[in-house]
Each structure stands twice: as structure tokens, then as C-alpha cells.
Design a protein around this nucleic acid. Structure first.
Lengths: 180, 180
DNA sequence: AGGTGCATGTAACAGGTTACATGATTAA
DNA sequence: TTAATCATGTAACCTGTTACATGCACCT
């Protein structure tokens, strides 16, 4: 009865269809300006996954060419909606994976302590760029935003801002210690 | 002259040797209670990488059996120290990769809005578990901690704490809105 | 006429995890 | 004696990225 294991990537696609995205291309564009910061996806994942989901009967695709240009539009089947819901409800430990080379540099910064502040400053600058991107999304998406994406965006902004503040405070503290 | 591309995994190993870790096993143990939260590593990466680094002349290994039990102890060569330094100094955009299924669930929570608060609560509980782990490391490592690892730990604790606070505030806000 | 965007797809590759295999030492 | 810990290693597998290939439509 319950579908045979839905991968997180599969859930993303179901979720994106639920948010009204229609084609693989469409999904990729939207991922790149929304979930990218905590869940990226490439065409190499999306298109094969769409086929797999269709084989499993969770989504349904039909050809809707734009003029002579081929185009496959997908939507959720009832089974697909159910699969999405049961993923949202399920309480199996969700996957979390982080690889952050900047943190690693901070961690190993005793090896080159003169550069520690530079490392932190560089981290801060990257976070500032990220914050600018998130703010741009916030401006751009404006009113028409779903609540889930909105909350996620606010969380991202707050988090990034906190990180920046931490960096600033730590830069100051380290600079003071150096002067002594 | 400059070594032919040092992978982040390679840098981790060099860094760990610089922090005084000696064997592959040793490195793995320490990674698991320190960098794991932002950079994990498995034996399947560590042992082959140690061999590669030795071939490149960045580390030197010698047999130091404990009784009849084989054991290879590594340390940095001068070239290895230089490679570690140049990695720390380099300002090529450091790798950042995050996959967070919990965020994804929040993002798609419009599909099942009755469960949104549960999702946030579950996120908070996971962060609380993480915070407990970090605090345990803080207690346990105590005095003898290098500055880089210490700063990284404080950053992690602060970040996690902020996240928990955000979840609490948001849970309250959503609960209020529901009552209206 | 030409560049950009829409749209689909895949093969080769890179990176990492899991599971397994092996065996000595030490503490209970 | 037996379980846990120390210690090393690899093969099979899985997941994801990059690079490439293709071609129409639309705007200027």
C-alpha cells in the first residue's frame, strides 16, 4: 500500500509540484532561488527522479508543447499527495548533512593564528553576501509568498544575521586581545 | 612547487595531525566528537587519504605497533605544514554544502498546515539534542582546548541556541494565530 | 542574424557511506 | 571468558555534479 521508499529528492519534487511548479526546468529554477541554501538539486537529479516518480504512480506527466518546443507538464496524483503528506508527518530522523570548509579553517586556525581574524572576516563577508541574496528574495517575492517558504526565509535571514553579529563581536574581541 | 591540489578532506587530515592526532583511528574518533557537526569523515575516506598524502610527501608514516597489534603513526612533513598553511591562507571560495530535510519540511508545510507546529517542535527538539551534545563536549574538553576548536564550539553553541529560541518564538506565534 | 531563455536529457566522473573482513589488547 | 576498544583496510554501492548535446522561441 504505502509507496516503496520516497527519497528526500523525491519529496522535494512532490513538494514543488504541490507549490504549483510544472516542469523539470521550472522546478530547477525555483529550487535555485529558494531551497538552494539548504537543499540543492541539479537537472541530473530532477529529470531522472521525475521519471521514477511517474513509474511509481506518484505523479502524472503530459506533453504540452509550447509551439514546436517539447514540454512535459507534471502534476500530483492522489497517491502522490498521500506520499507527500506521509513524508511530512513521518518522524523518522530527517537527514542533515553539512560540509563547511570555512568552519574547518576556523577550527584549525591555531596552525596560523595571525590569520584567524582574516578567516573570521572572510566568513562574515560570505554571510553578508548570503544575507543580501535572502533579502533580495524577500523583496522580490513580496506578497504572493506561501507561509512555509516565508517562514523558512525568515529563519534563514535571522540565522545569517546572527552569524554576522557573532563574527563582528569575535573580530572585536580577538583584535583587543592582540593589542594587549 | 605548490602541491597538486589538496582536497578539503586532505586538509582535515593535515589539520588533525597538526593538532596532535596520530593514527587514522585516532583522527576518526576525534572528528566524531568535534568537526562532525560541520565536517564528517569515515574510515573509507581517512585511510585511503592518508596513503595519498604520504605519496605526495605531505605526511610521513612509521610503524609503531602496540604489542603485536599493527599501528601506523603519522606526522606532518615540512611540505605538509606548508600545504596546510597555504590552504588556511588561500581565499578561493570555500566549499559549503547543506542538506537539511527538516528545513525542507518547513518549506513545504503548507501542504499539511495542521502539522506545521509539530514540524517546528521536532526541529527544536533536534536542536536541543545537538545543544546538549555540544555542551557535553564543552564540559568534557574543559581547559585543554585549542583556541580554534574552542571558538568553533562556542559558535556552534550560540548558533544552536539561537535556532532553539527562534523555534520557541515561532511556535508561540503560530499557536496564537491558530486561536484567532 | 544572433543572443538569451525555455526545455530536456544523459554519460562520465567524483565523492562519500555501508558493510564486511580481520585480528590483537585490555578491562570486567 | 567475553565484551569493548584499538586498529586497519576495502569492495560495492549510492548519490550527486559537471559537462555535454540538442533544438525551438522570442526579442532586438
Amino acid at each position: 500500500m504505502s509507496s516503496p521508499e520516497l527519497s528526500p529528492t523525491g519529496s522535494v519534487i512532490l513538494g514543488m509540484l504541490a507549490l504549483g511548479k510544472q516542469t523539470g526546468y521550472d522546478i530547477k529554477q525555483f529550487v535555485d532561488k529558494s531551497t538552494r541554501h539548504f537543499w540543492a538539486a541539479s537537472y541530473g537529479q530532477i529529470y531522472p527522479e521525475l521519471k521514477r516518480l511517474e513509474e511509481q504512480g506518484l505523479i502524472r506527466g503530459r506533453q504540452e508543447p509550447t509551439g514546436g518546443r517539447p514540454r512535459t507538464v507534471y502534476d500530483l496524483t492522489d497517491a502522490g499527495k498521500e506520499a507527500l503528506h506521509s513524508w511530512l508527518r513521518s518522524d523518522v530522523e530527517p537527514l542533515v548533512e553539512l560540509r563547511d570548509e570555512g568552519m574547518l579553517k576556523l577550527f584549525f586556525s591555531d596552525t596560523l593564528p595571525e590569520h584567524r581574524i582574516d578567516n573570521i572576516r572572510a566568513m562574515r563577508e560570505r554571510q553578508e553576501r548570503k544575507l543580501a541574496q535572502l533579502r533580495a528574495i524577500e523583496q522580490h517575492a513580496g506578497e504572493g509568498m506561501h507561509r512555509g517558504p516565508y517562514l523558512t526565509l525568515q529563519l534563514g535571514i535571522g540565522q545569517t544575521q546572527w552569524f554576522i553579529d557573532w563574527c563582528e563581536a569575535t573580530e572585536r574581541r580577538l583584535a583587543e586581545m592582540e593589542r594587549e
